[in-house]
Protein backbone atom coordinates (compact mmCIF):
# COMPACT_ATOMS: atom_id res chain seq x y z
CA UNK A 1 0.00 0.00 0.00
CA UNK A 2 1.26 3.40 -0.82
CA UNK A 3 2.25 5.59 2.08
CA UNK A 4 -0.47 8.04 1.20
CA UNK A 5 -3.17 5.37 1.36
CA UNK A 6 -1.67 3.93 4.47
CA UNK A 7 -1.94 7.34 6.24
CA UNK A 8 -5.48 7.92 4.97
CA UNK A 9 -6.55 4.52 6.25
CA UNK A 10 -4.98 5.29 9.61
CA UNK A 11 -6.87 8.59 9.84
CA UNK A 12 -10.13 6.87 8.98
CA UNK A 13 -9.43 4.10 11.47
CA UNK A 14 -8.81 6.65 14.23
CA UNK A 15 -11.93 8.56 13.38
CA UNK A 16 -14.02 5.44 13.89
CA UNK A 17 -12.11 4.48 17.07
CA UNK A 18 -12.68 7.94 18.54
CA UNK A 19 -16.43 7.65 18.19
CA UNK A 20 -16.41 4.94 20.80
CA UNK A 21 -13.86 6.65 23.08
CA UNK A 22 -16.27 8.03 25.72
CA UNK A 23 -13.85 9.38 28.32
CA UNK A 24 -10.41 10.84 28.74
CA UNK A 25 -8.84 7.53 29.67
CA UNK A 26 -9.99 5.84 26.44
CA UNK A 27 -8.76 8.88 24.57
CA UNK A 28 -5.36 8.63 26.21
CA UNK A 29 -5.11 4.93 25.32
CA UNK A 30 -5.84 5.75 21.67
CA UNK A 31 -3.30 8.56 21.73
CA UNK A 32 -0.65 6.12 22.93
CA UNK A 33 -1.71 3.57 20.29
CA UNK A 34 -1.47 6.07 17.45
CA UNK A 35 0.98 8.74 18.46
CA UNK A 36 2.87 7.03 21.29
CA UNK A 37 6.53 6.00 21.18
CA UNK A 38 5.67 2.57 19.91
CA UNK A 39 2.43 3.55 18.24
CA UNK A 40 1.21 3.22 14.71
CA UNK A 41 2.79 6.43 13.41
CA UNK A 42 6.17 5.40 14.80
CA UNK A 43 5.81 2.11 12.95
CA UNK A 44 5.08 3.93 9.67
CA UNK A 45 8.01 6.29 10.25
CA UNK A 46 10.29 3.31 10.55
CA UNK A 47 9.24 2.39 6.98
CA UNK A 48 10.77 5.63 5.65
CA UNK A 49 14.24 4.10 5.92
CA UNK A 50 13.29 1.55 3.31
CA UNK A 51 12.37 4.20 0.74
CA UNK A 52 14.76 5.57 -1.81
CA UNK A 53 16.56 8.61 -0.43
CA UNK A 54 14.91 11.08 -2.84
CA UNK A 55 11.41 10.03 -1.74
CA UNK A 56 12.19 10.27 1.93
CA UNK A 57 11.62 14.07 2.39
CA UNK A 58 8.18 13.88 0.75
CA UNK A 59 7.31 10.86 2.79
CA UNK A 60 8.46 12.61 6.01
CA UNK A 61 6.33 15.59 5.21
CA UNK A 62 3.30 13.42 4.47
CA UNK A 63 3.71 11.68 7.79
CA UNK A 64 4.06 15.01 9.65
CA UNK A 65 0.94 16.30 7.94
CA UNK A 66 -0.89 13.14 8.88
CA UNK A 67 0.25 13.52 12.52
CA UNK A 68 -1.14 17.06 12.59
CA UNK A 69 -4.40 15.67 11.22
CA UNK A 70 -4.53 13.01 13.91
CA UNK A 71 -3.77 15.54 16.61
CA UNK A 72 -6.61 17.70 15.39
CA UNK A 73 -8.88 14.67 15.59
CA UNK A 74 -7.77 14.07 19.17
CA UNK A 75 -8.32 17.71 20.07
CA UNK A 76 -11.81 17.62 18.62
CA UNK A 77 -12.57 14.41 20.48
CA UNK A 78 -11.18 15.94 23.69
CA UNK A 79 -13.43 18.91 23.28
CA UNK A 80 -16.37 16.64 22.68
CA UNK A 81 -15.70 14.76 25.87
CA UNK A 82 -15.43 17.98 27.87
CA UNK A 83 -18.70 19.23 26.45
CA UNK A 84 -20.40 15.97 27.33
CA UNK A 85 -19.01 16.23 30.86
CA UNK A 86 -20.35 19.78 31.22
CA UNK A 87 -23.71 18.60 29.89
CA UNK A 88 -23.70 15.80 32.42
CA UNK A 89 -22.81 18.24 35.20
CA UNK A 90 -25.60 20.53 34.11
CA UNK A 91 -28.01 17.63 34.31
CA UNK A 92 -27.57 17.43 38.10
CA UNK A 93 -30.40 18.71 40.32
CA UNK A 94 -30.30 19.01 44.11
CA UNK A 95 -33.12 19.77 46.51
CA UNK A 96 -31.71 23.15 47.46
CA UNK A 97 -34.35 23.60 50.12
CA UNK A 98 -32.97 20.72 52.17
CA UNK A 99 -30.96 21.68 55.33
CA UNK A 100 -31.66 25.39 55.60
CA UNK A 101 -29.44 25.78 58.64
CA UNK A 102 -27.24 28.83 59.13
CA UNK A 103 -23.58 28.24 59.87
CA UNK A 104 -22.74 29.20 63.45
CA UNK A 105 -21.58 32.82 63.62
CA UNK A 106 -19.92 34.62 66.41
CA UNK A 107 -22.09 37.49 67.49
CA UNK A 108 -22.57 40.59 69.60
CA UNK A 109 -25.05 40.76 72.40
CA UNK A 110 -28.05 42.92 71.34
CA UNK A 111 -27.15 45.41 74.07
CA UNK A 112 -23.72 45.94 72.53
CA UNK A 113 -25.21 46.26 69.07
CA UNK A 114 -27.60 48.91 70.27
CA UNK A 115 -24.83 50.78 72.08
CA UNK A 116 -22.57 50.59 69.04
CA UNK A 117 -25.24 51.81 66.66
CA UNK A 118 -26.09 54.73 68.91
CA UNK A 119 -22.41 55.63 69.37
CA UNK A 120 -21.78 55.36 65.66
CA UNK A 121 -24.21 58.17 65.03
CA UNK A 122 -22.50 60.46 67.49
CA UNK A 123 -19.00 59.53 66.33
CA UNK A 124 -20.03 60.47 62.80
CA UNK A 125 -20.86 63.92 64.15
CA UNK A 126 -17.52 64.38 65.84
CA UNK A 127 -18.32 63.07 69.32
CA UNK A 128 -15.87 61.01 71.35
CA UNK A 129 -16.96 57.84 73.15
CA UNK A 130 -15.77 57.57 76.74
CA UNK A 131 -16.08 54.69 79.17
CA UNK A 132 -15.97 55.13 82.90
CA UNK A 133 -15.82 53.19 86.14
CA UNK A 134 -18.93 51.52 87.51
CA UNK A 135 -17.75 52.15 91.05
CA UNK A 136 -17.63 55.89 91.62
CA UNK A 137 -17.82 58.46 94.39
CA UNK A 138 -20.85 60.24 95.81
CA UNK A 139 -19.21 63.45 94.63
CA UNK A 140 -19.21 62.39 90.97
CA UNK A 141 -22.60 60.74 91.23
CA UNK A 142 -24.44 63.39 93.20
CA UNK A 143 -22.73 66.42 94.75
CA UNK A 144 -21.10 67.79 91.61
CA UNK A 145 -24.32 67.07 89.71
CA UNK A 146 -26.19 69.56 91.89
CA UNK A 147 -27.64 66.84 94.11
CA UNK A 148 -26.37 67.74 97.59
CA UNK A 149 -26.65 65.14 100.38
CA UNK A 150 -30.10 66.21 101.55
CA UNK A 151 -31.62 66.73 98.13
CA UNK A 152 -34.92 64.86 97.73
CA UNK A 153 -33.85 63.61 94.30
CA UNK A 154 -31.00 61.66 95.88
CA UNK A 155 -33.52 59.25 97.30
CA UNK A 156 -34.71 58.46 93.79
CA UNK A 157 -31.33 56.96 92.99
CA UNK A 158 -31.71 53.89 95.17
CA UNK A 159 -28.09 52.83 94.91
CA UNK A 160 -25.86 49.97 96.00
CA UNK A 161 -23.15 51.27 98.31
CA UNK A 162 -19.73 49.74 98.89
CA UNK A 163 -18.51 52.41 101.32
CA UNK A 164 -20.27 55.51 102.66
CA UNK A 165 -18.87 57.62 99.82
CA UNK A 166 -18.51 54.92 97.17
CA UNK A 167 -21.29 53.30 95.20
CA UNK A 168 -22.18 51.44 92.04
CA UNK A 169 -23.19 54.29 89.77
CA UNK A 170 -26.97 54.53 89.43
CA UNK A 171 -26.58 56.50 86.19
CA UNK A 172 -23.87 57.33 83.66
CA UNK A 173 -24.00 61.02 84.56
CA UNK A 174 -20.91 60.94 86.85
CA UNK A 175 -18.98 60.73 83.58
CA UNK A 176 -20.19 64.25 82.79
CA UNK A 177 -18.18 65.41 85.77
CA UNK A 178 -15.17 63.21 85.05
CA UNK A 179 -15.06 64.34 81.43
CA UNK A 180 -15.47 68.04 82.14
CA UNK A 181 -12.86 67.88 84.88
CA UNK A 182 -10.43 66.20 82.50
CA UNK A 183 -11.01 68.38 79.43
CA UNK A 184 -11.68 72.07 78.89
CA UNK A 185 -14.65 73.12 76.75
CA UNK A 186 -15.74 72.63 74.03
CA UNK A 187 -16.56 69.02 74.75
CA UNK A 188 -18.76 66.56 72.88
CA UNK A 189 -18.99 63.03 74.24
CA UNK A 190 -21.22 60.01 74.64
CA UNK A 191 -20.74 57.47 77.41
CA UNK A 192 -22.31 54.02 77.27
CA UNK A 193 -22.10 51.76 80.29
CA UNK A 194 -23.57 49.65 83.04
CA UNK A 195 -25.49 51.18 85.94
CA UNK A 196 -27.04 49.67 89.02
CA UNK A 197 -30.10 50.45 91.11
CA UNK A 198 -31.74 48.54 93.92
CA UNK A 199 -34.69 47.33 91.87
CA UNK A 200 -36.34 43.96 92.31
CA UNK A 201 -35.95 41.93 89.12
CA UNK A 202 -39.07 41.40 87.03
CA UNK A 203 -40.13 41.55 83.40
CA UNK A 204 -39.52 45.31 83.30
CA UNK A 205 -36.69 45.81 85.79
CA UNK A 206 -33.14 44.65 86.25
CA UNK A 207 -30.95 45.96 89.02
CA UNK A 208 -28.16 46.06 86.46
CA UNK A 209 -28.80 47.92 83.23
CA UNK A 210 -27.08 50.06 80.63
CA UNK A 211 -27.36 53.72 79.81
CA UNK A 212 -25.96 55.98 77.18
CA UNK A 213 -25.07 59.45 78.33
CA UNK A 214 -24.57 62.37 75.97
CA UNK A 215 -22.93 65.68 76.78
CA UNK A 216 -22.04 68.66 74.69
CA UNK A 217 -20.80 71.94 76.16
CA UNK A 218 -19.43 74.90 74.27
CA UNK A 219 -20.24 78.39 73.13
CA UNK A 220 -23.59 78.65 71.38
CA UNK A 221 -24.80 75.16 72.23
CA UNK A 222 -28.56 75.11 72.81
CA UNK A 223 -31.65 72.99 73.38
CA UNK A 224 -32.27 72.64 69.64
CA UNK A 225 -28.93 70.86 69.25
CA UNK A 226 -30.07 68.34 71.84
CA UNK A 227 -33.25 67.70 69.91
CA UNK A 228 -31.32 67.42 66.66
CA UNK A 229 -28.83 64.88 67.98
CA UNK A 230 -31.47 62.80 69.72
CA UNK A 231 -33.58 62.76 66.57
CA UNK A 232 -30.54 61.55 64.65
CA UNK A 233 -29.81 58.84 67.20
CA UNK A 234 -33.40 57.61 67.08
CA UNK A 235 -33.35 57.53 63.30
CA UNK A 236 -30.12 55.54 63.42
CA UNK A 237 -31.70 53.03 65.79
CA UNK A 238 -35.30 52.86 64.60
CA UNK A 239 -35.54 54.24 61.08
CA UNK A 240 -35.63 57.42 59.04
CA UNK A 241 -39.09 58.62 60.03
CA UNK A 242 -38.46 58.95 63.77
CA UNK A 243 -39.31 62.21 65.47
CA UNK A 244 -38.34 63.32 68.96
CA UNK A 245 -40.45 65.41 71.27
CA UNK A 246 -39.63 66.86 74.65
CA UNK A 247 -41.83 67.00 77.71
CA UNK A 248 -40.91 69.20 80.69
CA UNK A 249 -39.47 67.34 83.63
CA UNK A 250 -37.07 67.79 86.50
CA UNK A 251 -33.51 66.65 86.94
CA UNK A 252 -31.27 68.48 89.40
CA UNK A 253 -28.38 68.59 86.91
CA UNK A 254 -30.28 70.16 84.01
CA UNK A 255 -32.34 73.32 83.63
CA UNK A 256 -34.50 73.37 81.56
CA UNK A 257 -35.10 69.64 81.79
CA UNK A 258 -37.00 67.37 79.46
CA UNK A 259 -38.23 63.83 79.13
CA UNK A 260 -37.42 62.43 75.70
CA UNK A 261 -40.14 60.73 73.66
CA UNK A 262 -39.67 59.27 70.21
CA UNK A 263 -42.21 58.06 67.67
CA UNK A 264 -43.26 54.55 68.63
CA UNK A 265 -41.48 52.26 66.16
CA UNK A 266 -44.04 49.56 66.94
CA UNK A 267 -46.90 51.42 65.24
CA UNK A 268 -45.10 54.30 63.54
CA UNK A 269 -46.89 56.70 65.84
CA UNK A 270 -50.49 55.97 64.96
CA UNK A 271 -51.40 52.73 66.62
CA UNK A 272 -54.68 52.61 68.48
CA UNK A 273 -53.97 49.33 70.25
CA UNK A 274 -50.18 49.25 69.88
CA UNK A 275 -48.70 47.12 72.64
CA UNK A 276 -45.34 48.88 72.46
CA UNK A 277 -46.63 52.38 73.25
CA UNK A 278 -50.05 51.59 74.68
CA UNK A 279 -51.68 53.64 71.94
CA UNK A 280 -50.03 56.97 72.68
CA UNK A 281 -47.87 56.82 69.56
CA UNK A 282 -44.79 57.81 71.57
CA UNK A 283 -42.32 55.94 73.71
CA UNK A 284 -40.32 57.47 76.51
CA UNK A 285 -36.61 56.83 76.14
CA UNK A 286 -34.85 58.99 78.71
CA UNK A 287 -34.17 62.28 80.39
CA UNK A 288 -32.31 65.32 79.17
CA UNK A 289 -31.86 69.05 79.43
CA UNK A 290 -29.51 71.99 79.39
CA UNK A 291 -26.62 71.48 81.81
CA UNK A 292 -27.39 73.26 85.09
CA UNK A 293 -25.14 76.27 85.76
CA UNK A 294 -24.20 74.76 89.14
CA UNK A 295 -22.83 71.69 87.37
CA UNK A 296 -20.78 73.84 85.00
CA UNK A 297 -19.44 75.80 87.96
CA UNK A 298 -18.61 72.59 89.85
CA UNK A 299 -16.17 71.60 87.09
CA UNK A 300 -14.77 75.08 86.61
CA UNK A 301 -16.64 75.97 83.42
CA UNK A 302 -18.12 79.47 83.16
CA UNK A 303 -21.88 79.17 82.61
CA UNK A 304 -21.99 82.72 81.23
CA UNK A 305 -19.58 81.75 78.45
CA UNK A 306 -20.48 78.17 77.63
CA UNK A 307 -23.76 76.34 77.60
CA UNK A 308 -24.51 72.72 76.97
CA UNK A 309 -26.89 69.84 76.95
CA UNK A 310 -26.89 66.36 78.41
CA UNK A 311 -29.09 63.32 78.11
CA UNK A 312 -29.31 59.79 79.46
CA UNK A 313 -31.20 56.94 77.82
CA UNK A 314 -31.75 53.38 78.98
CA UNK A 315 -30.20 50.99 76.47
CA UNK A 316 -32.37 48.03 77.48
CA UNK A 317 -35.45 50.13 76.82
CA UNK A 318 -34.15 51.11 73.38
CA UNK A 319 -33.20 47.53 72.59
CA UNK A 320 -36.52 46.12 73.77
CA UNK A 321 -38.40 48.45 71.47
CA UNK A 322 -35.93 47.93 68.66
CA UNK A 323 -36.06 44.14 68.70
CA UNK A 324 -39.60 43.82 70.09
CA UNK A 325 -38.48 42.07 73.26
CA UNK A 326 -41.18 41.78 75.91
CA UNK A 327 -39.15 40.77 78.96
CA UNK A 328 -36.02 42.65 80.01
CA UNK A 329 -34.61 39.52 81.64
CA UNK A 330 -34.03 38.03 78.17
CA UNK A 331 -30.87 40.15 78.11
CA UNK A 332 -29.32 38.22 80.98
CA UNK A 333 -30.84 34.79 80.40
CA UNK A 334 -28.51 34.35 77.40
CA UNK A 335 -30.64 31.66 75.80
CA UNK A 336 -28.87 30.50 72.62
CA UNK A 337 -32.10 30.87 70.65
CA UNK A 338 -32.40 34.51 71.78
CA UNK A 339 -28.78 35.39 71.02
CA UNK A 340 -28.91 33.57 67.70
CA UNK A 341 -32.04 35.36 66.50
CA UNK A 342 -30.58 38.76 67.22
CA UNK A 343 -27.05 37.97 65.98
Amino acid sequence: MALHDQLSALAAELASALTSASDERALEELRIAYLGRSGKITEIRRGIGKLPPDERPTAGKSINDAVAGLEAQFAAAQQGIELRKLDAELERTLDVTLWNVPAPLGSFHPIRKTIDDACTYFVRHGFAVLLGPEVDTTRHNFDALNIPPDHPAREGFDSFYLRPDLLLRPHTSPMQIRAMEAYPPPIAIVVPGKCYRRDAVDARHLYQFNQIEGLQVGEGIHFGHLRGMLTGMCRELFGPRQEVRFRPSFFPFTEPSAEIDTTCPGCGGGGESCRTCGGSGWIEIGGSGMVHPNVLRAVGYDPDVVSGWAFGCGIERLAMVRYDIGDIREFIWNEPSFLEQLA
Binding site: H125, G126, L130, Q216, G218, F223, R227, G228, V244
Partner: peptide, 19 residues
Protein backbone atom coordinates in the same frame (compact mmCIF):
# COMPACT_ATOMS: atom_id res chain seq x y z
CA UNK B 1 -37.46 73.91 70.15
CA UNK B 2 -36.12 73.46 66.63
CA UNK B 3 -33.97 70.38 66.00
CA UNK B 4 -30.52 71.35 64.75
CA UNK B 5 -27.18 69.62 64.26
CA UNK B 6 -24.61 71.23 66.54
CA UNK B 7 -21.17 72.35 65.44
CA UNK B 8 -18.37 70.13 66.69
CA UNK B 9 -14.81 71.22 66.28
CA UNK B 10 -11.85 68.93 66.05
CA UNK B 11 -12.25 66.26 68.70
CA UNK B 12 -9.49 66.47 71.30
CA UNK B 13 -10.77 63.53 73.31
CA UNK B 14 -9.72 60.03 72.30
CA UNK B 15 -12.12 57.10 72.35
CA UNK B 16 -9.35 54.54 73.00
CA UNK B 17 -11.00 52.39 75.66
CA UNK B 18 -14.24 52.14 73.70
CA UNK B 19 -12.43 51.39 70.46
Amino acid sequence: VVAAIPPTGQQAIASEAYE
